[in-house]
Amino acid sequence: MAFHEVRFPANLSFGSVGGPERRTEVVQLSNGFEERNTPWSQSRRRYDAGVSLRSLDDIGALIAFFEARQGQLNGFRWKDWADYKSCTASATPAYADQLIGIGDGLRAEYQLVKSYASGSQAQSRDISKPVAGTVRIGLQGDELQEGVHFTVDVATGIVTFASPPAVDERVTAGFEFDVPVRFDTDGIQVSVASFQAGDVPQVPVVEVRL
């Protein structure tokens, strides 16, 4: 599958319904207890782009984007308005938001990650589609300068340092990011009369693994 480094129009994704889902296998035992397992180490996100359409022009933009991606064939970027920053929704990304690694004096490449914590539990999520120009990097509490101390591959989320961080130096990051997705349908059915009456088409979108 090819991936197009283009974002679904943000004004059309605003108001969409969706979020993370997990796959949990639950086995009911004869004694009344349960065994629960999951084959997924990471959650997968799903959205419905149809509910955010507000005008016939929006439908036209959606169809043009759908055709350019050839339906399910090619992936694209999606802005999840509920979760697109390394910090809280009301804050501005800062270079110390997320710990992405500890230096060992040898490694120069680090993957951007975001940690989701609640109580003593935390889940780490690789961020592969940062937004260009938003990535800030810190090293041992000091902010670095992009293009001088490091570079960012916005297609993979990998940060490359000009010189490997020293042993035990904390590497931190702040950023905005998109979700890599594809359409989860090869057809969009629209009735202008129904749309004007308030019935919007369903346009499922699903996260892809890269």
Rank of each mutant, 00 (worst) to 15 (best):
I100T: 01
L73K: 11
A96Y: 14
Q72A: 12
E169H: 11
V148F: 01
E143R: 08
R209D: 14
A89W: 10
D178Y: 15
R182K: 14
Y110K: 05
P39A: 09
R182Q: 09
G187Q: 14
S41N: 13
G32W: 03
F175W: 03
G141H: 09
P164N: 04
I100V: 13
D178H: 15
E21S: 14
V179G: 02
P204I: 09
F177L: 01
R69I: 08
I127D: 00
R54W: 02
R7D: 04
F66E: 10
L62K: 00
I100W: 06
F3W: 03
G60P: 13
K114H: 04
P93A: 08
R36H: 07
Y116A: 04
Q145W: 00
D104V: 08
R44F: 07
R136S: 11
Q189Y: 12
A68C: 08
E67I: 04
A10F: 07
T160L: 05
E25N: 14
Q70L: 11
D178T: 06
V148C: 06
E25H: 13
A197C: 03
Q189I: 12
F66P: 03
V205Q: 03
F150D: 00
F195A: 10
S191R: 09
T185E: 00
A94D: 12
K85F: 12
P164L: 07
G198A: 06
G198V: 02
S16W: 00
D186C: 07
A166L: 13
G103M: 04
V148P: 06
N11Y: 05
Q121W: 05
L139A: 04
S194T: 02
G157V: 01
A132K: 01
Y95I: 04
N11K: 13
I127C: 13
D58K: 01
D48F: 03
F175Y: 14
Y47K: 09
Q202M: 12
S52N: 05
D199T: 14
A122H: 02
Q42P: 02
G19D: 10
S115N: 12
P93D: 04
A82M: 10
A96D: 15
F161A: 07
G32Q: 11
N31G: 10
A2K: 03
P180H: 01
A82T: 13
R23E: 15
Q202H: 07
A122I: 02
G187Y: 09
P130H: 00
T172D: 01
R136G: 00
I188E: 01
T172L: 05
T134P: 11
A91I: 09
T134H: 00
G174Q: 10
D126Y: 01
N31P: 09
A96Q: 10
I59F: 00
R182G: 05
N11W: 06
T92V: 15
Q196V: 04
P9E: 05
R107M: 09
G133D: 03
V26H: 13
D48H: 00
R22D: 06
N37D: 08
W81V: 06
V167D: 00
L106K: 14
Q28F: 08
G187I: 04
D168W: 00
L99P: 01
T38Y: 06
L73N: 04
L106S: 14
G15C: 07
Q196I: 12
V159T: 09
A108E: 10
G19L: 03
D97F: 12
S124K: 08
A2T: 02
V181C: 12
S120T: 15
Q140A: 15
A197S: 14
